[in-house]
């Protein structure tokens, strides 16, 4: 195993590190940068718990090698809110609408929803279910999550009005 040097921007902060080539971006974020909000569930691209924004696009960080992300700009759940200790509109909406129970899947949902609403600010129920087809929640039955996405669109609109 040979270590490779990488430099990435995570949540606006420039981070440098050395990592084994085999390390996934999810493991690098958690183990090297101590950003443990990104969860690792299935490790084969199905559950969506590890979703992060890579150069602005929602991707599965378990299917990206850390060295592939060299030079990239990454946003994790820790960087979704406006500042530490304050919730962003999607987080606020998930809390208000009971869009979570155990919370394991929630970081992935929040990151995914944040990215999708940036592209589609007023989705229908069907569009929400389609946009969240790559995130699995085993607690809520999704009703609260769909409600939370609608609520998030209102909160975002209020904030920008």
């Amino acid at each position: 195993m040979t270590d490779q040097a990488i430099a990435i921007t995570v949540n606006g902060e420039r981070r440098k590190g050395r990592t084994e080539a085999r390390t996934t971006l999810a493991d690098f974020l958690r183990d090297e940068l101590a950003l443990t909000g990104t969860h690792v569930g299935c490790e084969h691209g199905v559950c969506g718990a590890c979703t992060v924004l890579l150069d602005g696009e929602a991707v599965r960080s378990c299917l990206v090698l850390a060295v592939q992300a060299d030079g990239a700009d990454i946003t994790t759940i820790e960087g979704i809110g406006p500042e530490p200790g304050r919730l962003g509109p999607v987080q606020q909406a998930f809390m208000e609408c009971h869009g979570l129970q155990c919370g394991f899947c929630t970081p992935g949902f929040v990151v995914s929803v944040t990215s999708f609403l940036a592209e589609q600010p007023a989705p229908t129920d069907d569009e929400i279910r389609e946009m969240l087809s790559g995130n699995i929640c085993r607690c809520t039955g999704y009703q609260g999550i769909v409600a939370a996405v609608h609520r998030a669109t209102e909160l975002i609109e209020e904030a920008t009005a």
Binding site: A21, T24, E43, H44, G45, C62, L63, V64, L65
Partner: peptide, 22 residues
């Protein structure tokens, strides 16, 4: 990586030399 990384994570493919096109 949507096929290859799954094979790696499941141990169905051995680590080796990879050329990333990203």
């Amino acid at each position: 990586g949507t096929d290859l990384m799954v094979e790696l994570n499941f141990g169905h493919r051995r680590a080796g030399v990879f050329v990333s096109l990203r």
